[in-house]
Design a protein around this nucleic acid. Structure first.
Length: 959
RNA sequence: GCGGGAGUUGCCAAGCCUGGUCAAAGGCGCAGGGCUUAGGACCCUGUCUUUUAGGAGUUCGUGGGUUCAAAUCCCACCUCCCGCACCA
């Protein structure tokens, strides 16, 4: 089939769906099913990877629709956020790379690119691009409910949401550290930096040591080690600054002074002092009564921390080594008389280490001096060992016996509360440069607004709902609980970007992850705005209170909002009909943020009956086994892929390559295979028209039985969203059944199978249609069925159509045929004649008895033989006791299902069943077949084979 | 570190939840045959070892255990991958 033909099929059915408004959903008497997906951020065209989540959701929607639900599957577009702003700025600055990417990678026409200096134009362009792709993919979306997050009505909705959160005390104000570009005066995130470095940072405790009236601050990750300080370190070659920091005089490195400036300290430089001048002076240790010396060390760097370091030689390898180095050249430091008396103070006890862990590890790693790079490794190891396994010793006062992990926080708080400490943030990677070239810093933002996800009652509520919700796959439930525990206050507003302004403080714009948590409710009513029945200008909070929370006076709200009372009622009813969300689909990357916030906010704003029911999470898509990325150039825009492969093939390729959580691998090979498969099925569909079914023969009953089993299995798989498994059943597993059926029918030269195949294939097409909607419609119509398959009912498994006898008989045929084939293969003979002997009647009896025994748990061969001999019917077992062992093994190697089925069916008339082989053997080898019973006196048995026959395992003679 | 996932026969990859139909689907590769002007495409057959009667042996990261029966359940260990924030 050509690309053209595929495109025509898609076009034809897309038009039909659209003309008949098949996917528009309005409240009616049916049960509803509301399925949503995280809406896209339109800053680039969507690629195959984006297609996965939407395709999964669409399959879900289509399946539920066929199962009789009134399905609502809507879509919006998330304009809120900063990346688009950054892109627009780069276009204004004529950024060649970006413009080139638009032109060649995204194929944006030049005249459009020129408009891209305006952020909204970028969003608008990709919005339309993405939407077109979704339509081409065949997603069954109700487009009357489309919106963007900068629509005036949406702004009102978000304002309402935030006022509600604030009323509930969940929005709070505070300070917040962020990665910051001093030149742009803006927070920076990973894609704002050169080389896409995440501007992550670590919090240090700054402990203030006193020298005269000066403060010598030291930054540390281990405040609890203050009890082990023996001295301070300065770098003698650094020219330190004396600066007024708030109300104290600090001695710090020049770099530190700059950093502190961004942490809202008032800094006034008042002088300088060189490191060497400080050496030999004494400082007072806060919270301790003693004094220690300031000593020189070369490992101290002025751009790290404050440029001053506190020395804990017992537990910090750098400190131990530096002290050791210094002692070796003590003669050069006459101004420090007591150098040799400085001894490490051990304060932490850790299993596997003695008093001075730092010395132990230095010796172990063979470190020679303080400039040895291995000291980093040593520090890491000691830190992690002590942090998780260490305990404070008696010399730490009230912190004695505490484990280090707890003591660290406790000591920090204690020193801070006493005013002897401060906080400093340090970027983990230095330097981080903004795209503008400036070096980034950590800035403490004042008056930042937060959603208080720390609130313990809120957390608790979320936990308990997470444990009640349906979450697929199940593993993710734990992950959610973990995220909830770990989540803290989250900044919810920023100063730049597209979005809704904070209603009580218009300087702030509500951040993108906070304005996208309850918008699913918005889908249920937005169609009235789009139809012009709601005028955003007249809408105030009371409207939302009424519709979503059933609060307020209908008459009053009606006159305020200029919406007739009936319409208002209808809008409210529509919300109440569709809410809650039944299934939310999303990529795995949104678990630690969006999806968790989604639960948090629903619980905060809506009553319990509107809380979301189910979350379905999926993994990402790989391209030929590799991660897709711009730099690798292996991103395939979805619309391009549709043009080359067709929507159905892409949908199947994405779905069939992995189960939910795994990464799906998209590769040409797989798509080609699928396309082939679909084309074969399509061709097959033209062959069999509906016809009155003839009298059912064994193979007909068999294929019907198999169909019922398929329906049952596929239905369960889809219900669990195991779409790969479902597809496997429908596409491949069942295919081998059809192959077998055709082989049987052809061998018999039958001509009356069309009706049966029509029925079977129609059911299969129906089950394929949620996955591959276009080609399924085409197959459905070529099979001669009426209406749209996407609107037809999902096949119902019918147990009564399962004929266990025919299943057993066909199995017998297959295994016997396999055996024959095997013998011929091993013996390499050319068969001229085949004779088959079925087991004697007493063996069948014995088989049933043994089967019964095994089923009830008895596998003891001895007792079995005894009881069989005791029974007249099976007493002949005496002649062949080995039969029991073999039969038990036969039975044991079968599945429970198959044993049950054999139990139910009882003895199969094997002579009759195996006589069906004749036509197959004739077709395969062109030779004759004879079937005898073992007990047939007149049988032909020159090699005395017949006696080896067992039930379900006939003896075979090939000549 | 915390949390999650994975290790299967030459390669990719199913099977594991729910133990037996598992020497283990499917695809690729490879070998032989067909078709074809050769090639490509396509179709058939084979592809752990062994075997001239449908059999046997050894396999599913490693080592134990449970069971009549383990790729599948339990325990321990080794190795690899992903996420840890104010960013969509």
């Amino acid at each position: 089939m050509t690309k053209m033909e595929w495109a025509q099929i898609e076009e034809k059915w897309r038009k039909k769906w659209n003309d008949e408004k098949q996917f528009e959903s309005n409240p009616d008497s049916r049960k509803k099913f509301f399925v949503t997906v995280a809406y896209p951020y339109p800053n680039s065209p969507q690629h195959i990877g984006h297609g996965r989540t939407y395709t999964l959701a669409d399959v879900h929607a289509r399946f539920m629709r066929m199962s009789g639900y009134n399905v609502l599957f809507p879509m919006g577009f998330h304009y809120t956020g900063t990346p688009i702003l950054g892109m627009a700025r780069r276009v204004q600055e004529n950024d060649k790379d970006l413009i080139e990417a638009f032109r060649t990678l995204y194929k944006v026409p030049d005249e459009k690119i020129r408009e891209f200096s305006e952020p909204v134009k970028i969003a608008d362009y990709f919005h339309q691009e993405i939407k077109a792709g979704m339509i081409e993919m065949g997603y069954s979306i109700d487009w009357r409910r489309e919106f963007t997050t900068i629509d005036p009505f949406y702004n009102k909705f978000i304002e309402w949401q935030f006022k509600k959160l604030k009323e509930n005390g969940l929005v709070i104000q505070g300070t917040h550290p962020v990665g910051w570009c001093p030149k742009d005066q803006n927070p920076v995130s990973q894609h704002d930096t050169l080389g896409d470095i995440e501007p992550s940072f670590t919090e240090y405790t700054v402990i203030k040591f006193k020298y005269d009236n000066y403060v010598l601050p030291t930054a540390t990750l281990r405040p609890e080690t203050i009890f082990g300080v023996t001295n301070l370190w300065v770098n003698p070659n650094v020219n330190y600054e004396i600066a007024k920091v708030d109300n104290e005089e600090w001695i710090i490195s020049p770099e530190c002074a700059i950093k502190l400036g961004f942490l809202n300290k008032k800094i006034t430089k008042t002088g300088n002092i060189s490191g060497s001048e400080l050496v030999g002076k004494k400082v007072k240790i806060p919270e301790r009564s003693d004094e220690v010396y300031i000593l020189p060390a070369t490992f101290v760097e002025s751009d790290n921390g404050t440029g001053v370091v506190m020395s804990v030689p017992a537990h910090a390898p750098f400190d131990y080594q530096a002290l050791d180095d210094l002692k070796k050249e003590a003669s050069r430091h006459p101004n420090i008389p007591a150098l040799s008396e400085i001894k490490p103070i051990s304060i932490i006890e850790t299993e596997g280490y003695g008093d001075i862990p730092a010395r132990e590890i230095i010796e172990k790693l063979g470190i020679k001096n303080q400039d040895d790079p291995k000291l980093e490794e040593a520090t890491k190891e000691i830190y992690s060992k002590e942090f998780y396994g260490g305990k404070l010793k008696q010399n730490t006062g009230k912190f004695a016996n505490k484990v280090v992990a707890d003591a660290k926080e406790a000591v920090k708080k204690w020193i801070l509360d006493n005013g002897n400490a401060d906080i400093l943030y340090e970027l983990n990677e230095n330097p981080v440069r903004c795209r503008c070239g400036a070096e980034c810093v950590v800035k403490l933002l004042d008056n930042q607004w937060f959603l208080n996800y720390s609130n313990p009652e809120w957390k608790e509520k979320v936990h308990s709902w997470i444990n009640e919700m349906k979450i697929l796959p199940e593993e993710i439930r734990n992950e959610f609980n973990h995220v909830v525990d770990w989540l803290k206050e989250r900044a919810c507003a920023r100063q730049h970007g597209l979005g809704t302004k904070l209603p009580w403080d218009k300087n702030w714009i509500i951040e993108s992850l906070s304005d996208s948590v309850i918008y699913m409710a918005y889908y249920t009513i937005v169609k009235y705005v789009n139809a012009g029945e709601i005028k955003p200008d007249y809408i105030s909070d009371s409207f939302f209170d009424y519709v979503f929370l059933e609060k307020g006076d209908l008459q009053k709200i009606s006159s305020e909002s200029k919406i007739p009372q009936e319409t208002l009622e209808k809008i409210k009813k529509e919300f109440q009909y569709y809410y809650p969300v039944n299934a939310r689909h999303s990529g795995r990357d949104l678990v630690p943020n969006h999806l968790t916030f989604f639960i948090f906010n629903h619980l905060a704003i809506f009553p319990k009956k509107y809380w979301p029911e189910e979350i379905v999470v999926n993994g990402s898509v790989l391209m030929d086994g590799k991660k897709m990325s711009k730099s690798m150039g292996n991103i395939i825009p979805l619309r391009d892929a549709i043009k080359t492969h067709g929507a159905d093939s892409i949908r199947l390729a994405i779905l069939i390559s992995a189960e939910l959580l795994q990464d799906a691998d998209f590769n040409q090979e797989a798509v080609r295979g699928i396309k082939n498969k679909l084309e074969n099925m399509l061709e097959e569909s033209t062959k069999y028209k509906a016809a009155k079914e003839a009298l059912l023969m064994q193979e007909d009953k068999w294929i019907h039985s198999r169909l019922q089993q398929l329906i049952a299995k596929a239905t369960v798989s889809i219900q669990k969203m195991r779409l790969r498994e479902a597809l496997h059943h429908v596409l491949y597993e069942f295919d081998s059944d059809i192959q077998w059926y055709l082989r049987r029918v052809e061998a018999k030269n039958r001509t009356d199978q069309a009706g049966i195949l029509h029925e079977v294939l129609s059911a299969r097409v129906a089950m394929l249609s949620p996955f591959a909607p276009y080609v399924s419609e085409e197959m459905w119509s070529r099979l001669g069925n009426q209406g749209l398959v996407s609107m037809s009912p999902w096949p119902n498994p019918d147990e009564t159509k399962i004929d266990l006898l025919s299943v057993q008989s066909e199995d017998l045929l297959k295994t016997t045929l396999d055996d024959i084939k095997n013998i011929i293969k091993v013996t390499k003979m050319t068969p001229k004649k085949i004779t088959i002997y079925t087991a004697a009647a007493w063996k069948a009896k014995a088989y049933q008895k043994i089967l019964y025994q095994v089923t009830s748990g008895n596998v003891n061969i001895g007792t079995m033989i005894k009881s069989l001999i005791a029974d007249n019917e099976t007493a002949e077992i005496k002649k062949d006791p080995d039969f029991v062992k073999k039969t038990v093994n036969d039975i044991l190697s079968e599945s429970q299902e198959s044993r049950d089925s054999k139990n139910k069916v009882g003895a199969v008339d094997e002579i009759k069943a195996l006589s069906e082989l004749e036509s197959l053997i004739k077709g395969e080898y062109g030779i004759g077949l004879q079937v005898f019973s073992e007990t047939d006196q007149a049988k032909y048995d020159p090699k005395n084979k017949a006696r080896t026959a067992r039930p379900y395992k006939p003896a075979i003679l090939i000549e």
